[in-house]
Computed example of a mutant assay.
Amino acid sequence: MTDPLIRDLRALGDHLPSPEPTAALTAAVLARVATEPVPVKAGRIRRLVAWARARWRALVSLLTGLVLVGALTPPVRAAVAEWFGIGAVEVRTTTGAAPPTAPPPTIEGGVTLEEARELVRFDVVVPSALGAPSQVGVSADRMVVSMAWPGVRLDQVGARLAPYFVKTVYDEVEFTMVDGDEALWLPSPHEIVVQSPGGAQRAEPARLAGRTLIWQTGNVTLRLEGDLDRARAVEIAESAR
């Protein structure tokens, strides 16, 4: 007859994913094991099996928790966001002091909102919480529509495989929600560059960006930048129609 402990552990292993263990995960397991009593002296193997059987529920819970923790803890989630980004925006983290706050740049070569909608191949939205924009522009490659209000800028990027904006942040990335979908909140000033479709940085230099909310609507990526707190940024994003 199969030992119940072995049967249950095998069943658990068949249904759980097996990600590559990280240094942090290994350290957590070793720290937890170190707190448990260890059988010693004669009959070590027999005592170890008995000890494991007595604690099999705790061991199963520990293994399950360690496998699932990567999907729950903010540092790991931030690493996932850094790797995949959101839509056309890629976020990279670094160490050091955050740069000084800079206001959003003005928009060059302005067009009307109607002209912008005719120039691009995606739906352009306007946040009703901000009203009509004071400036509207379209990038030379017709991939980005930018809008400006006093102290606030909104960029909308059409679908593409490679990142369009690459952001280097000096603070922890925060997760929030916009209309029920996950979004990223960058709470401190950071550098931003524009990439070509092949992944090379474009000729224009990196610039500083302020607090920024990043989210997606369908196949369009949006980034709202300005002197806003997270609650106000989400409110503006959810009013975009």
Results as ranks from 00 to 15, higher is better:
154 L>T: 10
144 V>E: 10
149 W>V: 05
176 T>E: 04
138 V>Q: 06
150 P>T: 03
166 V>K: 07
169 V>M: 08
161 L>A: 15
169 V>K: 00
117 R>N: 10
143 M>L: 15
148 A>N: 11
138 V>P: 05
178 V>D: 05
152 V>A: 11
147 M>T: 02
174 E>L: 14
145 V>A: 08
126 V>G: 02
179 D>Q: 13
149 W>D: 01
132 A>L: 06
157 V>G: 01
120 V>L: 09
117 R>G: 01
133 P>H: 02
181 D>T: 10
154 L>Q: 14
178 V>G: 07
174 E>T: 09
152 V>H: 08
124 V>F: 04
145 V>F: 02
127 P>I: 13
147 M>H: 03
130 L>K: 09
123 D>T: 10
181 D>N: 09
163 P>E: 00
119 L>D: 08
152 V>I: 15
128 S>Y: 03
145 V>C: 13
132 A>P: 06
140 A>G: 01
118 E>M: 15
172 E>K: 13
140 A>M: 04
177 M>D: 12
168 T>V: 05
128 S>F: 09
136 V>M: 03
154 L>R: 09
162 A>K: 14
163 P>N: 02
179 D>P: 00
162 A>T: 14
129 A>E: 15
124 V>W: 02
167 K>F: 02
177 M>W: 12
171 D>K: 06
138 V>S: 05
139 S>G: 09
173 V>C: 00
134 S>N: 03
154 L>D: 14
147 M>G: 01
132 A>C: 04
171 D>T: 05
130 L>Q: 14
140 A>N: 04
151 G>V: 05
167 K>N: 09
129 A>C: 06
148 A>L: 13
154 L>M: 11
170 Y>T: 09
148 A>G: 10
172 E>H: 14
148 A>S: 14
128 S>P: 00
117 R>A: 07
168 T>R: 03
173 V>T: 06
139 S>H: 08
172 E>M: 10
135 Q>A: 15
137 G>L: 08
150 P>E: 06
132 A>V: 02
181 D>P: 00
122 F>G: 07
123 D>G: 05
144 V>R: 00
155 D>R: 10
178 V>K: 06
175 F>H: 09
172 E>T: 14
149 W>Y: 11
121 R>D: 10
118 E>H: 14
142 R>P: 07
181 D>M: 04
123 D>S: 11
163 P>G: 02
151 G>R: 06
